[in-house]
């Protein structure tokens, strides 16, 4: 599955580790929440970066204390109809100030890209090659947004106030 990061298809430098696979000495690894929580220290002590796959039906509470030392949080879309990870993403970014990579995994399709970006994802494990290739085009589809989220885009209410402001200033 192609990984889109920074808007481009890029090489995944993380190796996904099965729960029973031996921990390699070197290299960035992506582990399940279960493996991580079983012994966080052994993973966090390594000098290489760590990523954790967090299921969408588990509260973030157990993850939050470790966020500063985690490079990647991978959230899961078991199907594209299951939108729980959007809430988790916003909480991680907006409430817990997670600044690492937030990766969308599972059934990640083209038509969710804009929602995901707005919720705070910045990496995408895209299911189809054609969708990954269309990433740049797709995310340009929308230029206006009604809701304020933590993604930095100026939502409509604020844009309007600015417009009104500049209109009245130029009078």
């Amino acid at each position: 599955m192609p990984l889109v990061r920074g808007g481009n298809i890029s090489q995944d430098d993380f190796v996904q580790l099965a729960d029973d696979a031996p921990l390699p000495e070197k290299g960035a690894v992506l582990v399940s929440a279960a493996r991580f929580l079983a012994d966080p220290q052994v993973l966090l002590q390594r000098s290489d970066r760590l990523g954790v796959i967090w299921p969408n039906n588990r509260d973030l509470d157990d993850l939050v204390p470790h966020l500063e030392r985690i490079a990647v949080v991978a959230l899961v879309f078991p199907t594209f109809r299951d939108g729980r990870a959007y809430s988790q993403a916003r909480l991680l970014r907006e409430r817990y100030a997670f600044r690492g990579e937030l990766r969308a995994t599972g059934q990640v399709l083209r038509d969710q890209f804009v929602f995901m970006l707005r919720a705070g994802f910045d990496a995408f494990d895209v299911k189809k090659q054609t969708d990954a290739e269309a990433f740049g085009q797709t995310v340009k589809r929308y230029s206006v947004f009604y809701q304020p989220t933590g993604d930095g885009r100026l939502a409509a209410p604020f844009r309007r106030l600015q417009l009104r402001h500049s209109e009245s200033a130029s009078l």
């Binding site: 594209f80 109809r81 299951d82 939108g83 959007y86 809430s87 916003r90 804009v114 929602f115 995901m116 707005r118 919720a119 929308y142 947004f145 009604y146 809701q147 989220t149 409509a156």
Partner: peptide, 13 residues
């Protein structure tokens, strides 16, 4: 209406 339209978090409830 505006707030709920294409809501990035609540479009797959």
């Amino acid at each position: 209406r505006q707030y709920t339209t294409l809501h990035p978090e609540f479009s797959f409830l």
